[in-house]
Each structure stands twice: as C-alpha cells, then as structure tokens.
C-alpha cells in the first residue's frame, strides 16, 4: 500500500507542476495575442511548442513513476 500511495502522490505533484506551467504559458500567450492580434499565429506556434516541452517532461515523469511502481 505504501508504494501505491507514494506513486499517487508523485503523479499528483506531476500534474500540479504541468498544469501550473501550461496554465502560465496559456495566460501569457493570450495576453500577448490580445495586445498584438496581428502576430497571434506566431504566438500560437510558440505556445504549442512550449506546452509540448512541458508536457514531454511531465509525461516522462509519469512513465517513470509508473515503471518504478
């Protein structure tokens, strides 16, 4: 039981971190887009790339947590 609950806590922490990061990216991207709508497509690409990088790290952590469990 001990190991299972530790994995669950780890997964929760991963989700927290990833959500915080992606949320901040989305927030600043939307702010930037509303300031300069004419370059919104460029901002969108940059946003998706940054979100994908965070997602990559968090998925990596999830897979490791799953394997260690």
């Amino acid at each position: 039981m001990e190991a299972i609950s530790l994995t669950a806590i780890g997964l929760g922490l991963i989700v927290l971190g990833a959500a915080l990061g992606i949320g901040k990216i989305g927030q600043s991207a939307i702010e930037a887009m509303s300031r300069q709508p004419e370059i919104s497509s460029k901002i969108q690409t940059a946003m998706i790339v940054a979100a994908a990088l965070i997602e990559g790290v968090s998925l990596f952590a999830i897979v490791v947590a799953w394997l260690v469990d």
Partner: peptide, 9 residues
C-alpha cells in the same frame, strides 16, 4: 522526448 510524448498521449 518525441518518442515518450506520442506514446504516453
């Protein structure tokens, strides 16, 4: 990272 991202998603 490309490998893990697609697989996990």
């Amino acid at each position: 990272a490309l490998m893990i991202r697609l697989f996990a998603n």
